[in-house]
Design a binder for these strands. Structure first.
Lengths: 136, 136
DNA sequence: CATAAATTGGACAATATTGTCCAAATAACC
DNA sequence: GGTTATTTGGACAATATTGTCCAATTTATG
């Protein structure tokens, strides 16, 4: 359902939020702990930096730090990484589909999209820090 | 959300169901009407044939015909085409995620997956034939 | 039986996503 | 000031998805 890139982004942010008491955290540590390819994760962190969810500094003792953890929602991350929001558009891909001119699944899909949007835009990274036995 | 292949598959099946009174319907007519690339749609129809949702005959007056329209659910189509069911697996891609060992979003995601499964496995092609002003 | 209209299947091409490598820039520290 | 530990950015590679082309086969029909 989610792209790999988004999964790595969310895991990175959870890891950063969990270790936010410490100073900058290097890429190598993040990717080791969330079990992701390092160079690819680097690209993803760059996107999170330009989305202002994360700040970074180069050099020794450099790395990444999450900012505004309480305000970062899953949906924001998906939009920042994929450029769209998972629940956008028609289920069948019809560009002209709308409530006025619905495709056959339009109204049932609208309901589903509402649930999806609730899921994506009510869960913040902050909330996830203490949940789950999973080691991230 | 859905792959292009699945979108073409569902549209093809809706088109076939709408014209099920007539005999075999050729690929050219289907792809023209659902506005899909013909050769690619051909591959997809082949998969629907091996999934026994559609029968086909070669040669003049040949084409495709949907069978058991009332029994074909959206989820079945997605499984036949993509080989998996959209709601499978962990949101974050963790293979060891489960209710016993949940990832941070596990329980909220389970709820969403239930809605998705309801959407996918309660809607049959049959139901969609008369719904929607959209021309398919 | 020849021709036309169709599916089938294999090989290939284009594009998107995922992933890797490396040089350059930068910051801390001895 | 040199060395080490980092991010950044660009080019490239691998894989998956989407899409195309064409020859072979099959069926109906005149």
């Amino acid at each position: 359902m989610l792209s790999k890139a988004c999964q790595y982004a969310i895991k990175s942010l959870i890891y950063l939020a969990k270790h936010n008491d410490r100073a900058y955290i290097p890429l190598s540590e993040i990717s080791k702990n969330i079990n992701s390819p390092e160079a690819f994760t680097s690209k993803i962190l760059q996107k999170l930096v330009s989305a202002k969810m994360v700040i970074s500094t180069k050099g020794s003792r450099g790395g990444f730090q999450i900012i505004n953890h309480e305000k970062i929602l899953l949906g924001d991350i998906v939009e920042a990484i994929d450029g769209s929001n998972l629940s956008e558009g028609c289920f069948l891909g019809l560009p002209e589909c709308s409530c006025q001119n619905p495709c056959p699944v339009h109204f049932k899909y609208v309901e589903l999209k509402n649930k999806l949007n609730t899921f994506l835009f009510q869960i913040s990274i902050d909330e996830l820090v203490d949940i789950g036995s999973m080691v991230i």
